[in-house]
Computed example of a mutant assay.
Amino acid sequence: MSDRLDDLERRIDELRAGVRRAMRVKDTATARTLRAELRGAERTWDALVSTAPAGDPKDSDPKDSEPLPPAKRLVTVREQVHQGLLLLGACAQPRLIVAVGAAFCGGTLRSNQLTSLRRDEERSFKSSPYGRPYYLCAALTDRLSPARGLLAASTWPQARRMVGPLSPRVDFLTCAIAVAEQVGDALIEPGGARLLARMARNIPGAIDGDLGPPDPARVIEAARAELAVHVERDTQDRAELAERATTQLGDTARLFGAATLSTVAKKRITG
């Protein structure tokens, strides 16, 4: 069993290296073939590991009698969301955070797990302000109210957590660059390549019509070119909004947004 696993692991490493070489020279046909073989090898490895009998004497080793190390701590939903936001470096919607977690962080998030997360964070902050190293908070609109469906990290500067007219596009391009950098730096994984392909389709010049995975370097170049057009104005808009938020809002509202008139009315009706 162990010899078979060793052979498979070596083959998996060889296939991953082959995929990267093919991607560098833009040989998409070879990359596609190698990735299919890689997925098959990984499935075989998983099947062997999951069916290996516990305590098989053939696989015994003297060190097996030593105390086992502590179990790896489970990463909470909150921590997985935080990891995704830090990787992206910009305000993001839950579905993008979930996709990034699955592609690069080994995450197991589902979108419905994020539904009440921001409200839970706000309640925690109100009960014990700044009791945690970070909070998962809201991006704020020009009305200083929470932007629908956009999460941010409390440790970011206030300006980065504001949403001006150009901010959705700027944040999308920023996230695309971050994803492309991860795909370029890490071993090519199907989830990361698929996510980058979806994002690249919305960036002019990022793909050349090829059916294969996009070139991360090309995506970065195209995203930065468009970002240069918008970033100065967006930075100015965000700075102005951040100044308003800092001077007009209290600690809680700066993180989670000011209540809108509709929210106040709803509370009065339900109260």
Rank of each mutant, 00 (worst) to 15 (best):
R268M: 15
K58N: 12
F125Q: 06
M23L: 14
Y135G: 04
K266H: 11
E14F: 12
A176M: 06
C105Y: 13
D64K: 05
P129S: 05
W156C: 03
R73N: 10
P168W: 06
R143M: 12
Q248P: 00
T115G: 03
T246Q: 14
L109R: 04
D3K: 11
S154I: 09
S2E: 14
A223R: 01
P190I: 03
G101S: 02
P213A: 11
G40K: 08
A138L: 02
A176S: 12
S116A: 15
A197R: 09
Q248R: 12
L117Y: 06
L15I: 05
M199V: 04
P216W: 04
R132G: 02
T44D: 09
R43D: 13
R39H: 13
R95E: 10
A138W: 01
Q248N: 11
L140S: 00
I177Q: 06
V49A: 10
D234Y: 01
A71T: 10
A41W: 07
G191V: 08
L74P: 10
S111G: 08
R39C: 07
A200C: 07
T155K: 03
A36G: 10
T51C: 06
P213R: 00
R35E: 14
L136I: 15
C105L: 15
Q93C: 07
R73K: 11
R198F: 09
P57H: 03
P204H: 04
Q248C: 10
R43C: 02
E232L: 15
T246K: 14
D61H: 15
V179T: 04
A206Q: 06
A29K: 08
S127E: 14
A239T: 11
R268P: 00
S262T: 00
C175V: 10
L255S: 00
E226K: 04
D208S: 08
L166I: 08
A138Y: 06
H230E: 12
R118G: 07
K63Q: 14
V179G: 02
T44L: 11
A200V: 03
T155V: 15
V219P: 02
C91I: 14
R224H: 08
L8T: 07
R43H: 15
R169V: 10
T174D: 02
K266I: 07
T33F: 13
C175M: 09
I188V: 14
D142W: 11
P214K: 00
P67I: 03
A102V: 09
Q113S: 08
A176E: 05
R78A: 06
G107T: 05
A90H: 02
V81D: 04
T44M: 06
R11D: 12
V81L: 05
L68Y: 13
V163H: 07
Q93D: 09
A103Q: 03
D208A: 13
Q113W: 09
G106N: 09
R148A: 12
V229W: 02
V49T: 11
P69E: 04
V100A: 04
M23T: 06
I207S: 12
R43A: 15
L136V: 15
A200L: 07
A102T: 13
G164A: 01
W156Y: 05
G106E: 03
R254A: 09
R254F: 03
R21D: 12
K266M: 12
S50F: 09
D27M: 09
I188H: 01
L261E: 15
